[in-house]
Design a protein around this nucleic acid. Structure first.
Length: 621
DNA sequence: AAAAAAT
């Protein structure tokens, strides 16, 4: 029985201390409610000294949060990726039912979400939508969306954005961050007069606002959401992403666009072909900003923001949102910002505790058989017929296809989704899964971020991800809106590097950690490092703080909650160890055979002591 | 080694 830390809530990864404690001890100044703390005082703009950009190894780009959280709002409407129809009132109210009591109960916990804000002249948060000076037409849309009360991130971020300030904000997906940047942007455009980006005698679309996101599906989702807020305001929302007909998208934009939601590649294409110009951009929002600035994406983002015709920082308003903001990414991101406010809204993720996490020791060759058993077990437990959904994550695209056909041959109705499928197939697979036509979906990480899939009762990590953030994100597909869920992971010697982080996370979420896993974790090094490379540039963790306050920058004025010792975390962390041919740390003498003797195998290591039968899972309501 | 994002 592993020692529990006695914390009854989940601390988001980016708010954790290296020792696992929260960044927000009781003595720390936080403002869980909407009062602006008295110790927040204006100070001159921070002067960020030039720095050398650290060379970065492959970073485990993390994106926010797994699911939509209640916050007393009705859960987000299901997004039909193909639905490009204008939103009608029914659409606006097309909220997925989550009117159960637990939502309201959980709401109380979210009110305590700790908040950290730093920067000059921080606008006071608002406690209600009425308090925020959004326009009448938008208030109606907010009501139509059944948003009764702003979420913590909305309460803080919307006043900041409405005040015209640049913002770097940390908040989980589903905590309402889409609205947190869409509402003030749309409101700002309305106040200044809608132009629909029309230049007389020009076919070039000139949007006033640009929203960037890392995946096509996420762009669709934001597009749909933004349309709801802009309903009957005259503001036009457009979308541009790859895998869909170029000409069709362009023609839609030619009809006028104020807010363009896009993935980077297609946008660059459109700008280069002179179908879109960024010269009128007044608002730039980057969703999943840390991922967007991660290797692979950064050059494109830099091209869009710095090398095309977009007005420079200061001449536009820039809003960056993400779940995590490692310090090195903050540095990159600050290039895009001017006198910005850094905002972190942590959350008390009690719903995460509603996910029963189970880790089983399963060798590669046994995985299929074990998965089959799991799927059968659930059917025998009488849950089938409710068409609850099971999401199975694998490592590779090919692996997804292979497992899909194997499942099919074994009588399961499964479908695969991954990036080698054409967009139409991706969307078809997703729809089929959501509908329950194929209640099992085998996915790569393409499905782990940004997708809102109701009724997922079970997430199986057939292959565990390399980084713990991905794990958190994947399992968060279940246990939504106050409902419980189950997450099962297949662990074997290939995953030893994840043992420590996995153990920590499970403890934090009050899960019982199997003995063999604890033992493995104790004997291995920090598992959040999958390739044995030093990640000291990232600091010891998380980046849930304004990097401007780090020791290198020497500016600790006007900050609250600064009792964290950066000196031990940012530059001094330099682990080095050797990985042997099996991928294990060479000096980790963890012995699989011992684990087997200890009964570590499948079925013996239920995360919370609950069997499948005793886990309350959701089905169709 | 892998996934995502342009054609």
């Amino acid at each position: 029985m592993p020692a529990q830390r006695g914390r009854s809530f989940y601390v988001p990864r980016h708010l954790r201390q290296p020792d696992g404690t929260s960044f927000f001890p009781a003595s720390t100044a936080t403002f869980p409610h909407s009062d602006l703390p008295s110790f927040v005082s204006p100070h001159p703009p921070l002067n960020i000294p030039p720095r050398s950009r650290p060379s970065r190894a492959r970073r485990d780009g993390t994106t926010p949060g797994p699911r939509r959280l209640p916050y007393g709002q009705i859960a987000s409407p299901e997004h039909d990726l193909n639905n490009q129809e204008p939103l009608d009132e029914q659409g606006a109210a097309d909220a997925e039912g989550s009117k159960n009591g637990s939502v309201l109960i959980n709401l109380e916990a979210y009110e305590d979400a700790p908040v950290e804000a730093s920067g000059a002249d921080i606008p006071a948060p608002a406690s209600s939508f009425d308090e925020i000076d959004l326009l009448e037409s938008m208030n109606k849309n907010i009501s139509r969306c059944k948003y009764e009360k702003p979420t913590p991130i909305q309460r803080h971020a919307i006043p900041i954005a409405l005040a015209g300030r640049d913002l770097m904000a940390c908040a989980q997906t589903g905590s309402g961050k889409t609205a947190a940047f869409c509402l003030p942007i749309i409101c700002g455009i309305l106040r200044n007069g809608v132009s629909n980006g029309k230049k007389p005698a020009s076919r070039i679309a000139c949007p006033t606002a640009l929203v960037l996101s890392p995946t096509r599906e996420l762009s669709c989702q934001i597009h749909d959401e933004a349309k709801k807020f802009a309903y009957q305001t005259g503001i036009k929302i457009g979308v541009a992403y790859g895998g869909a007909p170029f000409g069709l998208q362009v023609r839609n934009l030619e009809r006028g666009v104020d807010v363009l939601v896009a993935t980077p590649g297609r946008l660059v294409d459109m700008v280069e072909r002179e179908r879109v110009s960024l010269r009128m951009i007044k608002y730039l929002a980057i969703d999943e900003a840390d991922r967007m600035l991660d290797m692979g994406f950064e050059p494109q983002i830099r091209q869009i923001v710095e090398q095309m015709d977009m007005p420079p920082a200061g001449a536009r308003q820039t809003l960056l949102f993400s779940a995590t903001f490692p310090n090195d990414i903050q540095m990159l991101a600050s290039d895009f910002l001017s006198n910005y406010i850094f905002l972190t809204v942590g959350r008390v993720g009690s719903s995460t505790e509603l996910i029963a996490q189970k880790v089983e020791f399963v060798e590669e060759k046994d995985k299929r058989r074990r998965l089959k058993d799991l799927l059968h077990a659930r059917q025998e437990d009488g849950h089938h017929g409710k068409r609850e959904l099971t999401l199975v994550f694998v490592e590779t695209k090919r692996g997804a296809d292979v497992l899909e056909s194997w499942l099919f041959q074994n009588g399961f109705s499964a479908i695969a989704i991954h990036g080698d499928k054409v967009q139409v197939e991706r969307e078809r697979a997703l729809r089929s899964f959501k509908r329950g036509a194929t209640p099992i979906m085998v996915a790569t990480d393409v499905a782990s971020r940004g997708l809102d899939i109701p009724h997922v009762a079970h997430v199986v990590n057939f292959d565990l991800p390399k980084c713990i953030d991905d794990y958190v994100h994947r399992i968060g597909r279940t246990g939504r809106a106050g409902k419980s869920g189950l997450a099962t992971a297949f662990f074997n010697s290939k995953n030893v590097a994840l043992a420590r982080a996995l153990t920590d996370l499970m403890k934090e979420t009050n899960q019982e950690v199997p003995c063999w896993l604890s033992e493995c974790a104790e004997q291995s090094f920090d598992g959040n490092n999958s390739n044995g490379m030093s990640r000291n540039h990232r600091g010891n963790k998380f980046g849930g703080h304004d990097f401007r306050r780090g020791p290198k920058f020497g500016n600790k004025r006007n900050t609250f909650q600064s009792n964290y010792d950066y000196s031990t975390s940012i530059d001094d962390y330099n682990p080095s160890y050797v990985i042997d041919s099996n991928g294990n740390p060479a000096n980790c003498d963890y012995d699989i055979a011992t684990a087997q003797e200890e009964g570590a195998f499948g079925g013996q290591s239920f995360g919370n002591g609950l069997g499948y039968g005793s886990v309350e899972v959701s089905g169709w309501d």
